[in-house]
């Protein structure tokens, strides 16, 4: 049974068709790079996967069950989404990292935070940093840490390396690949063709809201 099954999915917003009749499956353990020009519907596709919006046509099945049958909050804990423009709320980094724990009514786990900080090369002193003083790249990495505090089954990444320098990009790519090898399914929007081919086993190409191809690489 596929992990995610898109059956004739369309999304229309304000009379404008964003996605049209998309049908494809995502198998458990897949690493799919999603490519396509701006405005082709890539981010909308990930928002549909994370159930922040629902299709206006067709159905999405997760583990064989229509997404609409799941409790939305539980579904979003299984399918984590990291957006292109990371939004850090509150005053400091700790508030952001405490949020996923408080959602699960669990105490803040400093050990887990330290582990992820070291994975993404973030000094631990950043924990109390003011979010307003962080650079775009730092925000992106903190946002990734916040998403990964609890490992999901599916990880949706929307150009999460767009504000990172070459070294940090490499580090994030390696970290995400390691997660994939440990069984986490990845759907990654990227504009970098080299990046898309290096780790992914499939490449999904969108154009003007339609699926142009789903290429299997490995």
């Amino acid at each position: 049974m596929p992990l995610l099954d898109f059956q004739d999915v369309s999304f229309i917003n304000d009379g404008k068709t964003i996605l049209k009749n998309l049908s494809f499956v995502v198998e458990a353990g897949d690493y799919i790079s999603i490519i396509g020009p701006s405005g082709s519907g890539k981010s909308t596709l990930l928002r549909l996967c994370s159930h922040l919006i629902s299709p206006t046509g067709g159905n999405i099945f997760y583990k064989g069950v229509n997404m609409n049958k799941y409790v939305p909050t539980e579904l979003r804990k299984s399918i984590a989404y990291c957006s292109q423009l990371p939004y850090l709320f509150g005053n400091n980094v700790k508030e952001n990292l405490d949020f996923p724990f408080s959602v699960r009514k669990m105490p803040f786990n400093e050990g887990r935070v330290k582990e992820l900080f070291s994975l993404f090369n973030i000094p631990f002193t950043f924990l109390n940093a003011d979010v307003q003083n962080l650079s775009g790249g730092e925000k992106q990495r903190i946002s990734l840490v916040r998403t990964l505090l609890f490992l999901p089954e599916v990880l949706l990444l929307d150009e999460v390396t767009s504000a990172l320098d070459a070294e940090n990009t490499r580090m994030v790519l390696n970290a995400i690949f390691t997660l994939n090898r440990n069984g986490i399914t990845i759907l990654w929007i990227t504009h970098n063709p080299e990046q898309s081919k290096k780790y992914a086993n499939k490449i999904l190409t969108l154009e003007a809201g339609e699926m142009k191809s789903l290429e299997v690489l490995k």
Partner: peptide, 20 residues
Amino acid sequence: REEVETKLSLGADILPSSIG
């Protein structure tokens, strides 16, 4: 909107996502 949807995507219910 971004703040609310970020919190929703972290698995939060609508109240913690809107409390601010």
